[in-house]
Amino acid sequence: MDSLVVLVLCLSCLLLLSLWRQSSGRGKLPPGPTPLPVIGNILQIGIKDISKSLTNLSKVYGPVFTLYFGLKPIVVLHGYEAVKEALIDLGEEFSGRGIFPLAERANRGFGIVFSNGKKWKEIRRFSLMTLRNFGMGKRSIEDRVQEEARCLVEELRKTKASPCDPTFILGCAPCNVICSIIFHKRFDYKDQQFLNLMEKLNENIKILSSPWIQICNNFSPIIDYFPGTHNKLLKNVAFMKSYILEKVKEHQESMDMNNPQDFIDCFLMKMEKEKHNQPSEFTIESLENTAVDLFGAGTETTSTTLRYALLLLLKHPEVTAKVQEEIERVIGRNRSPCMQDRSHMPYTDAVVHEVQRYIDLLPTSLPHAVTCDIKFRNYLIPKGTTILISLTSVLHDNKEFPNPEMFDPHHFLDEGGNFKKSKYFMPFSAGKRICVGEALAGMELFLFLTSILQNFNLKSLVDPKNLDTTPVVNGFASVPPFYQLCFIPV
């Protein structure tokens, strides 16, 4: 009986604490739906499609509103004006990374994606500088992407125009580009180590996009005490870190300090320079996690976009025909596509942009946080508050993009057929937390897609009208449904 009384008292205290925290903070924060004790607004949000729920709530509470995930307040920004004001106009104040408990377990605050403060700034600055020195957006990395595009075309030829699921092959190409940047090595598509790495990356994007992960991140005790797919994700990350550590040891034994070959060499050189400046942010643990982040951000996002792009091109054969006509006119058949071609191919450029806009790969991006107490639109948001960005509300804005739910390359073309930029184009987020590999991803999408369409016609196994382009999961990332196609050599 005594234990029951204690339990009831504990629960009562928890409920009172929950109510007090919510009521004391709500006077400062933007308005929002009334949260339930302990669980907050979790029942009012469709976990399978958070973005749709945010759109519905914005119609009631406006472009800036507050939700509670458990006891934790989260300020939501919906629509271009609110997102721009926060991420661009007040970029420094909104540059923090929001709480992501599962990532905390995986990387302990290291790396480039989930770190904060001085650690994040130094690692991000170093990573950007190193990638630029190796030619991100310049010639040397373009050579690597072109080489991988040629290998991709050869792998597709091996399908002999038979029906195939493109998931694996389209994942190999961007993964190999990242391998060449980090390890100075590309792998054969049949290499077992490479296959294991690909498998872990593919599993992780599916797990991260599941409703279960949303629950884990908002009720963090689940991570330590409950079984579930989150444990598989943590094991996959541990596998990748151990693999990278092996490569780091190989580099330490063979590195030429006067001739760095890749990202690992550059990081080890930085560690050597910083060894007298303790404590340094440049450690082996930081290198492991930064490399894992580059793999995660640079492989599955690009391969998922490529997979979605081919599905949309199957669905819209008239678009595919126009792209192939432009390829034939500008590039021809006797040389590989290059980035200089893009400025002469406005329709193809528009298609690449429209694919990214339409699929809305990361509907709410990753959570941000404010780095200080900030007054925002007459609300006071306390330091450390998590900020949720609705990228969907920007990419699918119906004023900027008429009929935003329709796939239409003319969203990025003017009346004369010239490519038209849009400030609403934010597939990689915006501001200080914009994806480090934005330029690389854009290069890969253009070169891989043009190389495929230069060499193959795409054949659907069903009537294009019957192809479903609805994402199968739409949590962290929008993942396309399973499909097969035939690559018919031109």
Rank of each mutant, 00 (worst) to 15 (best):
M136E: 09
F69I: 15
H410S: 14
E318V: 08
C179Y: 03
N277G: 09
E246R: 11
L233N: 03
I141G: 01
N41H: 04
D256V: 08
L17M: 14
E104G: 12
S3Y: 14
N204G: 04
S51F: 10
A350N: 00
S336G: 12
P163Y: 06
F126I: 11
I488E: 15
T392C: 08
K399H: 12
D143T: 12
T302I: 13
T159N: 04
N218S: 15
V83L: 10
V75S: 00
S140P: 06
K232T: 12
Q146C: 10
L71E: 10
I207F: 07
I387T: 07
K190T: 11
D224M: 10
E325F: 10
N116R: 14
I112S: 09
D143A: 14
E415G: 10
L9V: 14
M406F: 10
R144F: 08
K465F: 04
S127T: 15
N236L: 03
F446K: 01
A86R: 02
S451G: 08
S209Y: 07
G298L: 00
R139E: 10
Q44G: 11
L311M: 05
A369P: 00
Y379G: 04
I123T: 15
Q484H: 05
P73D: 01
I207Y: 10
F428H: 05
Q22F: 14
P63H: 09
R377A: 07
K138P: 12
L268G: 03
P63Q: 11
T364M: 15
S140H: 08
C172H: 03
V6L: 12
A149K: 00
I182Y: 04
G32R: 01
K375H: 10
D49I: 03
A173M: 01
E285Y: 04
V237G: 04
E253V: 13
N231T: 12
F476E: 04
A238L: 09
K52D: 10
P30S: 01
E415L: 07
E104N: 14
K160M: 09
E274G: 09
A350G: 04
K190P: 02
C151E: 09
K206C: 05
L312P: 00
F69K: 06
I50N: 07
L170N: 00
F401K: 00
C372I: 06
K273P: 06
L7N: 09
E199D: 10
Q193I: 08
L29W: 08
N116T: 13
M255E: 08
V8C: 15
K84F: 06
I359L: 06
A238T: 10
E285L: 04
F482R: 15
F183V: 02
R377G: 11
F412T: 01
D89M: 09
P489L: 00
P166S: 00
D188R: 04
G40S: 02
P481N: 04
T302W: 00
L485C: 13
A369V: 14
K206Q: 10
D262H: 03
E326T: 00
L388K: 04
I488S: 09
I47T: 15
H230P: 12
S115K: 05
G442I: 15
P464M: 05
Q324H: 09
S303Q: 06
S53A: 11
V472T: 08
I452M: 04
I42V: 14
T159D: 02
E400S: 09
R26H: 13
P260E: 08
A149C: 09
L87E: 06
F219V: 10
D341R: 02
L67W: 07
I169S: 01
L201F: 06
T167P: 00
P260V: 05
I244G: 02
T305A: 07
E326A: 01
F446A: 01
F401I: 05
A149I: 01
P409E: 03
I434G: 14
L87H: 05
T371P: 10
D188F: 02
V479H: 14
F110K: 11
D191C: 04
G475F: 09
K315L: 04
E272F: 08
N403G: 08
L287H: 00
Q340Y: 09
T34A: 11
F295D: 00
I434M: 15
F376M: 11
L197F: 09
L311R: 01
N218P: 12
K421F: 08
M136L: 12
I331L: 11
P346Y: 04
A173H: 01
N334Y: 12
K235M: 07
P409M: 02
N133V: 06
I178M: 15
P227F: 13
Y80E: 11
F419L: 09
K241G: 04
P260Q: 08
M426C: 10
P33M: 03
H410G: 10
E81N: 10
P427T: 07
F446D: 00
N133L: 08
